[in-house]
């Protein structure tokens, strides 16, 4: 049932309809549309109708270029904190809802630096130089920041050692109690007491 939708003919019709609609609208009320005279289709690339109101579709975008999908560029951008206040890294910010104007700018800077032949680390350093350490998604591992990385681990290891010691002491305390030598017959109880115990046990849900 979905095939017809893929069919070239219907597709074309739909697009033509769009084109006509847009063209018709523009010819009827040209004064309402403040855009420069428009082509309904871009030259040489086949049909690509003009939207009725592009402003509703968010910020105008540039076509995606190869650098946008470059894994190395993305890896760099994932280390950089977007300065728009979104609390995300540059890559995530610029690809999340495409409304931010800051992260695409930073993205262009990264690409420009990369085109100058800088390595990833150099680019990151460049950003740190320009914006300070806040630009990094995670603090560099040196100086006081090492405390940031290793305090939890150290605390847990120390606590585990302390816990082991405490458990040792408790276990020793238990073995020190002479209450229960392993001989089974050592429980001294009258039969009726055992009987009562058994009855109580029977009353517990199984």
């Amino acid at each position: 049932m979905m095939r017809p939708r893929n069919d070239g003919a219907t597709e074309c019709g739909r697009r033509e309809f769009f084109g006509f609609a847009a063209a018709g609208l523009l010819s009827v009320v040209p004064s309402f549309r403040r855009f420069v005279p428009v082509q309904d289709t871009l030259p040489s690339t086949g049909p690509s109708g003009r939207l009725w109101d592009p402003a509703r579709a968010g910020r105008p975008l540039d076509p995606v270029v190869a650098a946008d999908n470059d894994a190395a560029i993305q890896a760099i951008e994932k280390q950089l904190h977007c300065t728009c206040g979104c609390n995300l890294d540059v890559y995530t910010c610029r690809t999340t809802d495409f409304t931010c104007g800051v992260s695409p700018e930073m993205h262009r800077q990264v690409i420009a630096l990369a085109e100058r032949g800088m390595t990833g680390q150099q680019i990151v350093d460049q950003f740190v130089h320009a914006h300070g350490l806040t630009i990094l998604m995670a603090p560099p591992k040196r100086g006081f920041n090492l405390a940031g990385y290793f305090t939890p681990a150290v605390v847990i290891v120390v606590a585990a050692a302390a816990l082991t010691l405490v458990l040792r002491r408790w276990a020793r305390a238990a073995s020190g109690v002479p209450a229960a030598p392993p001989a089974a017959s050592n429980v001294t109880a009258a039969p009726e007491e055992l009987e009562r115990l058994r009855r109580e046990l029977d009353q517990l849900p199984t």
Binding site: V38, G49, L51, A57, G58, P60, D62, D97, T99
Partner: peptide
């Protein structure tokens, strides 16, 4: 600001997650 509504196709193995970023030159591109 304009917000984005994501298109998601899910099955148990993976989700295909599609976001419309915006348009180029005010066209359908």
């Amino acid at each position: 600001q304009p917000s984005t509504e994501v298109g998601i196709r899910s099955d148990l193995r993976e989700d295909l997650y599609v976001v419309l970023g915006g348009v180029v030159n005010g066209t359908e591109q």
